[in-house]
């Protein structure tokens, strides 16, 4: 496998088409697959889930270019098989593995404490986070903003009932509503992270 391989415009287009499985998603399937891969590597406690997800997609695209077509597995399943290889290779790097646990040991406390109810809501970081949240909420459409705030509002017991009402009002199944809320939340989280890092 060539490590310095980069897709051409044609090979990338071919890759997107293959991921779409015949239904043009306008790149959505690619983004969704990337999100799933990032989360997979994150759940495996890898240090750079984004990089590993990109590495996986790059290898799949390269394989597709080399072979012309991949039919023995569905695109999503094939991505998983490659991701598993990438993960095993990652494990081989002793430094990565050890440092990920070293890294894990300390920030847990730091963040857990910062997450306790006694957190100072007016600390500069918290203040920035809230500013970014407001900023990113304003970037959403009125409809999406209303949906996400209502969907995730309230204590556990009241939330279920509210979500049923919301689904009925929007004419959606609970499942479809959940998927929509998750997508908006993903989008909002990405925006807030970006905003905080740029600050």
């Amino acid at each position: 496998m060539k490590r310095d391989w980069a897709p051409t415009q044609d090979s990338f287009r071919h890759f997107l088409h293959w991921l779409d499985e015949g239904v043009d998603s306008g790149g959505e399937r690619y983004l969704e697959m990337r999100r799933r891969l990032v989360r997979y590597f994150d759940r495996k406690n890898c240090l750079s889930p984004d990089e590993l997800a990109d590495e996986t997609l790059s290898r799949v695209a390269q394989k597709l270019e080399d072979k012309g077509s991949i039919t023995e597995l569905s695109p999503a399943h094939y991505c998983y098989v490659v991701a598993r290889f990438v993960f095993l290779e990652y494990l081989r790097g002793n430094q990565h593995f050890q440092s990920s646990f070293e890294e894990a040991a300390h920030p847990v406390l730091q963040v857990s404490l910062s997450g306790s109810p006694g957190t100072d809501p007016e600390s500069p970081d918290q203040e920035k986070l809230h500013e970014c949240l407001e900023h990113c909420l304003c970037q959403l459409s009125d409809k999406d903003r209303g949906l996400i705030l209502e969907y995730y509002q309230g204590e556990q017991r009241a939330r279920t009932e509210r979500r049923s009402e919301l689904a009925a009002r929007l004419g959606l199944s609970m499942n479809a509503l959940s998927i929509r809320a998750c997508r908006i939340r993903d989008k909002l989280e990405v925006c807030v992270r970006k905003c905080c890092r740029e600050a």
């Binding site: 990032v38 994150d42 759940r43 406690n45 889930p49 646990f101 890294e103 894990a104 920030p107 847990v108 963040v111 857990s112 910062s114 997450g115 957190t119 809501p121 918290q126 986070l129 809230h130 949240l133 407001e134 705030l149 995730y152 509002q153 309230g154 909002l188 989280e189 807030v192 992270r193």
Partner: peptide, 25 residues
């Protein structure tokens, strides 16, 4: 949750985001 889930930086950011949403609510 605190020993396993919070052992990743990305997931800790998710928690901070959730906390910001709650504070706003």
């Amino acid at each position: 949750f605190e020993s396993f889930y919070l052992s990743s930086a990305n997931r800790r950011e998710k928690v901070q985001f959730a906390r910001a949403l709650l504070t706003r609510e």
